[in-house]
């Protein structure tokens, strides 16, 4: 069984969307806590973040969103994904505690590289540019699984699966004994299947955020199409 991770931007309708993603077959839901200057994100997630901020999705509101999602889908792992600026402002320890209290099972901080703030337990990201030494540090420090950034670039749909992924998987396997889930650039069931052949799961973000704007029904159907693609392997 390959793991399917779906990213959604926090917002008023997000708890219901998270439930729809889980019904469609998502194993893990990432919940974006928006930041005004998201360096790792391409246009789709950047715009979704701008909109969420305009609707008042500040840290407290995001934590409430997380708690409501937790009520609706008590068994699905929920992982806030955000930027260091939010933790710096809220207090690093307090953020971790309050996120756990609201139902988070882990955390991703897009601009906090492995080795920095090891006390903040989180899913570490590795990239095709990561050295073997950095892969080792990330694998040691990561929380549950390792997030493989498939390409050198920002988030957003691409036409093809990154050719850099196979080499990254090979290098990561050599040093990590945790599952490897790959994300960035994956948008179609074909991408998901091709990517999952190489590793243990996939993360779908930008395209899921776009489909989510059409409502829970559309998202459920989209996630189901990804699920079926993975299950056909």
């Amino acid at each position: 069984m390959k793991t399917l991770v779906i990213y959604l931007m926090a917002g008023k309708a997000t708890p219901e969307l998270a439930a729809a993603a889980a019904e469609g077959g998502a194993d893990v839901v990432e919940l974006g806590f928006p930041f005004s200057d998201p360096l790792a994100d391409g246009p789709v997630i950047r715009r979704a973040g701008e909109q969420a901020l305009a609707e008042g999705m500040r840290t407290e509101a995001c934590l409430e969103c997380l708690a409501r999602a937790r009520e609706l889908i008590p068994r699905t792992p929920l992982v806030p994904m955000t930027y260091a600026a939010l933790l710096e402002a809220y207090g690093w320890e307090r953020f971790v505690e309050d996120a756990r209290g609201a139902g988070a099972t882990s955390l991703i901080v897009a601009d906090l590289p492995a080795g920095e703030r090891p006390e903040v337990r989180r899913v570490q990201l590795v990239a095709p540019t990561s050295t073997d030494e950095r892969l080792r540090v990330a694998a040691q420090q990561t929380d549950g699984w390792l997030y493989l950034v498939t390409l050198t670039g920002t988030t957003g749909a691409r036409k093809e699966v990154s050719p850099a992924l196979a080499g990254l998987v090979e290098r990561a396997r050599a040093v990590a004994d945790v599952p490897l889930y790959a994300g960035f650039g994956i948008s179609t069931p074909e991408h998901a299947r091709a990517t999952a052949r190489l590793c243990d799961g996939v993360v779908v973000g930008s395209r899921a955020v776009e489909v989510a704007q059409e409502g829970p029904q559309a998202l459920r159907a989209y996630v189901r199409s990804l699920r079926e693609a993975l299950d056909s392997l």
Partner: peptide, 13 residues
């Protein structure tokens, strides 16, 4: 100061 960047840039830095 410090380095708050995505992992992709760390080797370049």
């Amino acid at each position: 100061g410090g380095r708050f960047v995505p992992e992709t840039l760390v080797p370049a830095l």
